[in-house]
Every structure is written in structure tokens, then in C-alpha cells.
Design a protein around this nucleic acid. Structure first.
Length: 299
DNA sequence: CGCCTTTGACCGGCGC
DNA sequence: GCGCCGGTCAAAGGCG
């Protein structure tokens, strides 16, 4: 159905990414009970912690030349608030805004209950035991102003589902990392408020290196997860804060509270995005540069 | 042939 | 208890 949109990001240069905090798995159209925005720099460290390297791939700039992880720059920024999503979409549509949101409900060292256990022959579907709760991995979401849904992040994904979302004309796609040992999932949906915004939500941490950017995990000195252990991460650092959600504007504006709260809580990395940072992406070399610091590339 | 997407059905959580 | 909804499964088909 959404085949055009689901293609990996190759195209139009207009990509604006906001990393938005999310404490509940549903995001965007539905219940978001918490949300954080972070600066680009903190995004990097956050994503690095997750072992992520978000790489919007542009026509002339395809993966392999990039390593893709970020220096965990922290603490440069002070407590201003990330620009609201709506504003990002509207006022700075050409800037590469980013704001990250991470969240975690539980982060248990166990694997997700899905798909690893083999169902007894007599049970045709669903191996999950009754009463067994779904285990949520640490997750984060980001919003990308882009024409395409699927951002290249250096990993390979297999789509395992697509669902229509209530209150949204756009379906939500579910992806799983193709690495059999890797339980990372991601969700991709389009904002119903602003169709140009793609909301991507990651859950879990990769236990392997990227496909396209093999050095990624090595580079991140703060990424202890490269070695395939599920270390406690965001749940120890970020704290969900209740927020209202209804539309992007609300979503975004309420972010300030969580950010401040985190700051107060004293998370080790609760750096909050600065407006100017969001409005003036630190990179001049296109989207890639926007995410990967020059020093981290092309080695 | 292997990998991936599509898609309808199933399951569990949650609100009423 | 019931219905809604999000998330997942897995068969079928497509593609390189």
C-alpha cells in the first residue's frame, strides 16, 4: 500500500528530524504520556547509547562512507526547550531540526517474549504464555520531516506488520531488525497533524554492528551495547513525565516540562535542546553531516 | 532460492 | 464482560 513511502530514504533533501521523547510505546496519534526533546548533541549520545546511527541517505551520499555514530557530546546546552514539532514543520521546514526522545518503560535484560520461543505444535499461533507480559525495551522516537518514511540507519529491517492507526489516515509500519539475535524493533508512522513528518520509534538496542556502517559500535566509546549485552540504559537516565497529547503542538510544547524535570532529576545526560541549536543544525554538509560530526566520518 | 513485503487474523491490554 | 485498538504472527506472493 504505502510502498512509495516505505522505501528507504533516498530522496528529497528536505529532512528535518526531531528526536522526541516518548515514555509510552504509542506515540503521536495516540497516547503519549511522556516526551522528551533533546538537542542534537544529546541526541547523539542518546542514540549512541542505543547503538544507533541514524543516517538519512541522500542520493549522492550513501551509507558506506559513513561510520555513523556520534560523539557523546553532552552538557553544552542548557535548559531551553526544543522547538515544537509544529513549529519545526512550519517555520523551519528547511532546517534539519532534531530532537530526540527516549524513553523506556522497563528495560529488562531478557529478550522480548516474542518470536524466540517455539510454539508447541498444538498451538498454531502465538507462543506467548498467558499472563506473560510483553516486555518493553528501552525506546526512543524521533520525528523527521521527510517525504519518505523509512530512514536508513545502517541496519537492515524486515517489515512484519502494518496497521491502520486510529485518528490517522496513515498506516503504521512495524519493522524488526533482520539480525536473528537482535530484538530491536522500530515503528514508522506519519504524523496525522503534519503528513510531512515521519515518526520513527525504536525499541531495544542492537547487539551487533551496523550493516552499512560497521565501525559504528566501535566508535561510540559510550556505547556499551555493541557487545550484545543489554545494559540498563535510558530507563536509568530519563524519567517519563506525564504530558498531554493531542496534536503535535501540544506534544511539543509539553516537552519542556519533561526536559526540565529530567534536568532536575539529575540524569547524567539530561541535556536539553537549545532553540538555536535546533534551528541551526550544526552541519553544513547535508543531512549526513547533520547527524554525524565531521570528525567521525570518512575514515 | 532466499529475502522481503503484504495482509488478514489473532492476541492482549485497557477503558467503559 | 465487552469492544476497541495496538502489536504481532505467519501464509502467500513478489522480487532480485
Amino acid at each position: 500500500m504505502e510502498q512509495d513511502k516505505d522505501k528507504p530514504l533516498h530522496g528529497p533533501a528536505s529532512i528535518t528530524t526531531e528526536f522526541a521523547g516518548e515514555s509510552s510505546w504509542p506515540l503521536g496519534a495516540d497516547d503519549s504520556d511522556g516526551s522528551y526533546f533533546y538537542s542534537v548533541d544529546s541526541n547523539r549520545s542518546i542514540l549512541s547509547d542505543f547503538g544507533w546511527n541514524l543516517e538519512p541517505v541522500q542520493p549522492n551520499r550513501i551509507g558506506p562512507d559513513v561510520d555513523g555514530l556520534w560523539v557523546p557530546a553532552q552538557s553544552d546546552l542548557t535548559g531551553s526547550v526544543a522547538e515544537p514539532i509544529g513549529a519545526a514543520a512550519g517555520t523551519s521546514s528547511r532546517s534539519n531540526n532534531q530532537s530526540v526522545s527516549t524513553s523506556s518503560s522497563e528495560d529488562l535484560p531478557e529478550k522480548s517474549t516474542v518470536s524466540d520461543e517455539k510454539p508447541p505444535p498444538e498451538i498454531p499461533r502465538k507462543s506467548k504464555k498467558k499472563g506473560e507480559k510483553r516486555i518493553r525495551q528501552p525506546r526512543f522516537a524521533f520525528m523527521t520531516k521527510s517525504d519518505v518514511d523509512h530512514l536508513e540507519d545502517g541496519y537492515r529491517w524486515r517489515k512484519y506488520g502494518q496497521k491502520a492507526v486510529k485518528n490517522s489516515p496513515f498506516p503504521r509500519s512495524y519493522y524488526r531488525c533482520t539480525n536473528s539475535k537482535c530484538m530491536v524493533k522500530k515503528r514508522v508512522e506519519r504524523s496525522s497533524e503534519d503528513p510531512s513528518i515521519v515518526i520513527t520509534t525504536y525499541e531495544g538496542q542492537h547487539c551487533h554492528h551496523t550493516v552499512g556502517f560497521p565501525r559504528a559500535a566501535i566508535i561510540t566509546h559510550e556505547s556499551p551495547f555493541a557487545g550484545c549485552h543489554l545494559a540498563p540504559t535510558m530507563s536509568q537516565i530519563y524519567y517519563p513525565v506525564q504530558m498531554q497529547r493531542e496534536n503535535n503542538a501540544t506534544f511539543s510544547s509539553s516537552v519542556s516540562q519533561p526536559c526540565q524535570t529530567q534536568d532536575e532529576v539529575g540524569g547524567s545526560r539530561n541535556v536539553i535542546a537549545a532553540d538555536d541549536e535546533l534551528q541551526h543544525p550544526p552541519i553544513d554538509e547535508g543531512l549526513l553531516g547533520d547527524i554525524v560530526p565531521p570528525g567521525m566520518r570518512n575514515r
